[in-house]
Design a protein around this nucleic acid. Structure first.
Lengths: 354, 354
DNA sequence: CTGAAAGCGCTTACAG
DNA sequence: CTGAAAGCGCTTACAG
């Protein structure tokens, strides 16, 4: 039992007045609680007139079904926990909207939890959520999550769908973006436009998504017969500030200055563009940039950012659907779904002029 | 009882295996369930050695507290419902992040619901959420919400905090932005920069926030001795597309062409800027524009958008705090909180050149 | 077709 | 300091 339970707010629905229950309805209509329950659950057993009487009384007393009580008795749950890093990241906000929409359509309610990209808070969040007995978890793991610890908290039998990040030796269902193909396409696009010296910029190399994107980038270079310079693999925190600060590292290597960069994601790309401007390098003219995610800002930036669109809302719907499938068939083998990703060409990657 | 309950997903925590309960712990340690419960709740009554034995066993069996069961017995709830229009609007996403953060710190869990700005779905959403017996609601009402119907669904005694939109004759707590002052400031700012012919663009005039912003706009004009032209009050749906389509209406009035517009919000302002460009009017040079909300795109738009910052994340925290206060003291008089709003001056409102 | 009874996992007076 | 008993609001075999 972790977290501090709310001690003050004692009023589940109302202050003083107790809520109307099936007992009230049963007494008022002169039937048993069992019969009221059958009416509520739409059982065909109930006599049509009995049903009518009960239904009138339910309306009259403004009865509200207590699903948590029913869930307790039935050993079910109608809630699904959604745990993401940060709602203020538009990509995850859209994802959450998609999840919530699909879960709602299937009669589930969404329990929300944010981790702020901290494995610590993630564990705390998850054990709090566990106490509310959700039927399953949709989890976008914080960077640096430990599968071992997660399993410890979630228990061996909880239904879990991982989004966005794979976890070493976790046998949970998983929905990821096609990171490798996406970065491959971005890199090919730059090569086609005439760039030959292309860096990979941003992200923590240890994260699985960054690793995959780098792999796609390298594959494209190799297929084109270009050299992969290790000095052109530049790490950064996945935020704008750190990316901007590290812009100069792109030109740190003595030999050749790259003329373009495939970035880990849009946020990092926008930060790099800012940093380049500060260095007197005009992004989109002196230096080509691509992103990943197609956040709303990508289309509005100057120059508009060439990027890969993952349609996060659709991913949310897909994630929810996959988890629901898992609930239907707990014994099916683990699912690994890879969502496609589409290139959006914009001004930040013009034809190479150099 | 509305909505379709999930019939398939029968496995609250695990498939087949039943969860460990206080009964298991009691049996294993040879104490009563009551004692285990006291240990869990941290009661000082329990003998220190008894407590130690029980705690070891809790760990050993990986006991997970079932808060929903406890809530049922105690007639409490540790959940709060958060109902907003659309998570894909960054303003609301930030707000939700703030709410969730503060609720989490106080041991509450967030039940999420989206209405898609539809009063219909809002009612359906709310009655589904009611079945989960949340302790209170934070509700950003969909446009066109009917207080009467809401009260019907929520019951007279539910604890509700309204955000962003007031509702005629609802005696619920309410947190709104200082719409009037914000629009007043934006208008004064344009006047100071030399504009005299200023339109008010976008939003549905019937919505309370739009009404208030228009009032601030008019006040500023009147105080400056400028005329308020009714033809310069242009309505639009609060989205980019409709705003862009209605850009030409700004110049529809025969007499004078306005040289600037105070917009209902950022989304509408960005739409207007797009529409103006299409008409050959260059926003920020030929025509000044201000927004409202300071969404992330505002700073990145070209020209960057002068707007009012409401700090939605802080609003979320504030909303959560207000609701928690209400739970502590259900009988306190209704609270109407008005959050301040700060002007962010950017390139879209340069000195008047005309 | 309907009711009496047991029980989901927990808490809380009340005895002792 | 600990246990027996009742009960939160619901559901589900089981009789009849």
């Amino acid at each position: 039992m972790s977290g501090k339970p709310p001690e003050k707010g004692k009023h589940a629905r109302e202050a003083g007045h107790r809520a109307v229950t099936i007992t009230d309805i049963a007494q008022a209509t002169g039937v048993s609680r069992a019969t009221v329950s059958l009416v509520l659950r739409g059982s065909p057993l109930v006599n049509i007139h009995t049903r009518a009487r009960v239904e009138v009384e339910l309306k009259r007393q403004r009865y509200v079904y207590n699903r948590t009580a029913a869930n307790l008795r039935r050993r079910t749950s109608s809630a699904i926990a959604l745990v993401i890093n940060d709602l203020s990241n538009p990509f995850f906000a859209e994802f959450a909207a998609g999840v919530d929409e699909t879960l709602g359509e299937h009669g589930y309610v969404t329990l929300l939890g944010s981790t702020g990209e901290s494995p610590q808070r993630q564990l705390a969040m998850l054990s709090t959520l566990m106490e509310h007995t959700p039927n399953g978890f949709i989890l976008s793991p914080a960077e640096g999550s430990d599968a071992q610890q997660l399993r410890q908290v979630l228990g061996t039998h909880a239904h879990v769908l991982l989004f966005n990040r794979e976890l070493a030796d976790a046998d949970w269902d998983c929905l990821t973006l096609d990171n490798r193909l996406g970065a491959y396409r971005a890199t090919c696009h730059l090569i086609e436009r005439g760039y030959r010296d292309i860096a990979f910029f941003g992200g923590h190399a240890s994260s699985s998504s960054c690793e995959q994107r780098r792999a796609g980038y390298q594959q494209a270079l190799i297929e084109a017969g270009l050299t992969v310079h290790p000095q052109w693999l530049i790490e950064s925190a996945p935020n704008r500030l750190d990316a901007a600060a590290r812009a100069s590292e792109v030109f740190a290597a003595a030999e050749v200055r790259p003329g373009a960069a495939v970035c880990y994601n849009d946020t990092v790309a926008l930060g790099l563009m800012l940093g380049l401007s500060a260095l007197g390098v005009c992004p989109g003219r002196d230096f080509a940039v691509t992103g990943f995610d197609d956040i709303a800002e990508a289309a509005l930036a100057v120059p508009a950012l060439t990027t890969l669109s993952a349609d996060p809302r659709a991913r949310g719907q897909q994630a929810a659907a996959l988890l629901l499938q898992r609930l239907d068939d707990p014994d099916a083998p683990p699912v690994r779904s890879v969502a496609p990703v589409a290139l959006r060409v914009r001004d930040s990657s013009p034809m190479c002029s150099g």
